[in-house]
Design a protein around this nucleic acid. Sequence first.
DNA 1: CAAGGTGTATTAGTGTAGCAATACACGTGT
DNA 2: ACACGTGTATTGCTACACTAATACACCTTG
Lengths: 118, 118
Amino acid sequence: MPIYRQLVDQVEALVAGGRLRPGDTVPSVRQVAAALGVNPMTVSKAWSRLEADGVLERDRGRGMVVAVPRDREAGSLAERKAQVRPLVDQAVVRGLQLGLTPAQLQAVMKASLEEKLP
Amino acid sequence: MPIYRQLVDQVEALVAGGRLRPGDTVPSVRQVAAALGVNPMTVSKAWSRLEADGVLERDRGRGMVVAVPRDREAGSLAERKAQVRPLVDQAVVRGLQLGLTPAQLQAVMKASLEEKLP
DNA sequence: CAAGGTGTATTAGTGTAGCAATACACGTGT
DNA sequence: ACACGTGTATTGCTACACTAATACACCTTG
């Protein structure tokens, strides 16, 4: 899995779980780049994508900051459910393929939720 | 999404849901290729990957056949749960990001299960 | 055996994702 | 104003994914 994507997923998980709250700052691209030994542009790509997805916001001269969630953009409840559906489907298919029962799959999701939420 | 991957996902879903059962035959690469207007090799790549994943089996001279599931290969229950976990995590993060509650996410999975299972 | 079906190894072309190097624009703080 | 901190546009390169064209090996069926 590409580096920038790992960064995106990591930050998204932290924000979704509430461990990074709106207003919190994120390490600068150079800090992260140095820590990982990669090019700053690689980190910038991740930060940019997170901004495009509405997770981060640019604060001129300071860096990137966690944005306040704007649920309105996400649409109605039904629409939002429809958006997650493909991902859930993928997990479900793989689970059934491995011989897991519906109840066991639900348990996995419950465990995931409990780990992510603060 | 690449053509061959769409085919893989589609067949996997049909098998996982029980709509294609062990012993059932799958359309030949040329039939599918003609129907979709693509190269037979593209379909063959999909069929091959499905064989590598243990979903299909080659029946010399006849074609591809749905294989009997061998749960032993999947390992213990905990191991299988661990294998689905990343996919579930991904769905959960996206769900939380969209402002869905844990209960709503569970509901989406329930709906997915009911659609897939026969 | 011959004809027609299966899947596929091989080769080749095309597009693009991913990363890095450089140089730049913009803002803060002193 | 100056030095230093942000993020990033641009460019170039490399590797690999995806698809296709062709020719082949194998099996079943008449």
